[in-house]
Design a protein around this nucleic acid. Structure first.
Lengths: 344, 344
DNA sequence: GATGTTTTCGAAATCGTTTTCGTTTGATAA
DNA sequence: TTATCAAACGAAAACGATTTCGAAAACATC
């Protein structure tokens, strides 16, 4: 049994003894086809189980109904939530999603951008690696008039639409909460030095201290490189050894906060009585570990879904006016108070 | 500044006053182009920054250099590892990956399969939802001669290539380990009734008991529906209430095992002294929680990478012989003994 | 010089769909 | 009867790359 080839417009046309043109028009709802002919075409298409050859359609229309998303890493709860949001919304609108990762490396990111461009995707959603700012390949996306949305890890130097949270405010809220719980000496295990995210969260931390007239001590801030559990553990050890009177920790992300908790648990330092801890991102495990971790909810799914919707708007805007919208959507975040920071 | 249009073979041909044919051949390394002409073409292509229009190439060659993968859910450590493996290997070979999820629903899965077929992907990798077996849409993939690889959650009724672990053996090893640690009465919080995975792990559990002449008590086995943390917690409570002398738990997956640990911790039941616990999958958090969870490593990344390689083989086989390979790769698993089951 | 052989090139068809621009037909109006 | 107009359909070009097949040119052989 060999593979019979797919039915085409031509086949339908031949069966009905009409032209390919009319068949195409009938199926696409053009008005210059009589109702009778249209119905005959539709019936025949049904009968033959016709589906348009999407390769031909893509080629003809220059649209792929495919978008690309580039993120630092797939295996990461926040980003996989983002992907999920993008996919779900894209799917609803009949778009496909191609996922590429940069592994936080610039060269990789460049390559991925080029791949997506060569693949002629209809649009690109991207979360930058830690090193990126206003690289050439980002400008290329802009120049080539490809619809483009940056999410979460953005660059202020690139002029395009963005979906973000207010990292500074979120961090302010987190640290403010710790202070309200009575913390006097709060350490911050921050992210790497370059990404805007980490900078903004650090600024939020400082702002909260300033707001309560708590002096800022740079020695209480240590930047992660890999942003991992182990760093949380190590840096807490380092800080607690030098400053045993630290009574609060604000971590760049929950995974790091779990490292903090592990060290404190090991040292039998009571959480939250002696030291209160708050993380960032609301990683789904945060509610499972002991003590349950306070955190900032960072709505990954919503961010992904919004990013797609915004990209869609961009696509339409560029098709009609030829101009970008350059709209920024800022999503809300809340402090989730759980056991690790809750003092009666 | 409006978007100048992309250079084409025709443009190169015009600039050099030769035919499109020759340009194409020169760039593709055909032998019937003189070295001189070839170099002129290549230089001009460079100069114009020519890249082939992939839409046209796809259309002409009927290949998309894109594969699809359908999994139950993206936000899941094991599956996101699988995706990572697929993407990484695919990328190395210049393939794109379109990711779709079934959310464990059959209708969804059907839709996704149809979408991928209509998109004319070069091949499909799939992990089945809990309800699927030998659905029509799976047969359609086979009939349409689309290269196809099933991974992890497979169906024995579909004749195609597969990448799996030996779930029964892995489960046997896990329970065998518990018994060797002195457990006499082991409960199993198993997966749903339908998926082959869950069945095989349950069979492995039974086989291990039988091997040590431990009677099998069906009341010590409770199937999950959602396979989540909460079910782990609840079912442990249920079992421990009725059978307080249970001294071992084997969970379908680590997340469930964490639920088990949480309940035991709350009840101040000592792990592993009173009750030993082992999970499945080696979720990366398993080494972080307290006590560290023993588990079976389930190599998601490798599975994804192998699946792509196997799919590639299938693609080649189908192109040359027109036949499927129907090869099954079984990956190794090991018992990772950690604190939750380690008795001196 | 005639014949055969290789090297190098290009015309044209092809993939399937979409869209522009006619053409035909029949009906209506003048 | 002729001009006008709308409705219904189709011919053909287009998208850009690939490939088949044949032709021309260059070279070799006798």
């Amino acid at each position: 049994m060999k593979q019979q080839k797919e039915p085409t417009l031509k086949l339908i046309a031949e069966k009905l003894n009409i032209s390919v043109t009319t068949v195409s028009k009938a199926l696409k709802g053009y008005s210059d086809v009589s109702a009778v002919t249209r119905q005959r075409v539709i019936d025949m298409a049904d009968q033959l189980n016709y589906t348009p050859n999407s390769l031909a359609v893509n080629f003809r229309t220059k649209e792929t109904r495919t978008i690309g998303i580039i993120i630092p890493e797939v295996v990461h709860h926040f980003f996989s939530s983002v992907i999920n949001g993008v996919i779900e919304e894209a799917e609803r609108q009949n778009y496909f999603v191609i996922i590429l990762q940069s592994n936080e490396k610039k060269e990789m990111e460049k390559r991925q951008v080029e791949l997506l461009i060569s693949k002629k995707v209809d649009g690109i959603i991207m979360s930058l690696s830690n090193q990126s700012n206003d690289e050439d390949y980002l400008k290329m996306i802009i120049n080539k008039k490809i619809p483009f949305v940056l999410i979460d890890k953005i660059s202020k130097l690139i002029d395009c639409s963005k979906v973000v949270i207010d990292d500074k405010k979120a961090a302010f809220d987190a640290v403010n909460h710790l202070i309200n719980m009575g913390c006097k000496k709060i350490a911050h295990i921050r992210g790497p030095l370059n990404p805007q995210n980490a900078i903004d969260r650090f600024l939020g931390y400082k702002a909260a201290l300033a707001h309560h007239n708590i002096p800022f001590n740079p020695e209480l801030v240590i930047p992660c490189e890999r942003v991992c559990y182990e760093e949380g553990y190590e840096f807490t050890k380092k800080i607690m050894t030098k400053y045993p009177d630290v009574d609060g920790f604000f971590a760049i992300t929950d995974l790091v906060a779990v490292g903090i908790l592990t060290y404190l648990n090991e040292q039998q330092i009571k959480v939250p009585e002696q030291v209160a801890v708050i993380g960032f991102s609301n990683w789904f495990m945060s509610g499972v570990i002991s003590p349950k971790l306070s955190t900032i909810d960072q709505p990954g799914f919503t961010m992904g879904a919004q990013a797609f919707l915004l990209l869609k708007e961009e696509m339409e805007s560029m098709k009609t006016t030829g101009e970008r919208l350059c709209k920024t959507i800022t999503l809300n975040t809340d402090v989730l108070v759980r056991a690790s920071s809750k003092r009666n």
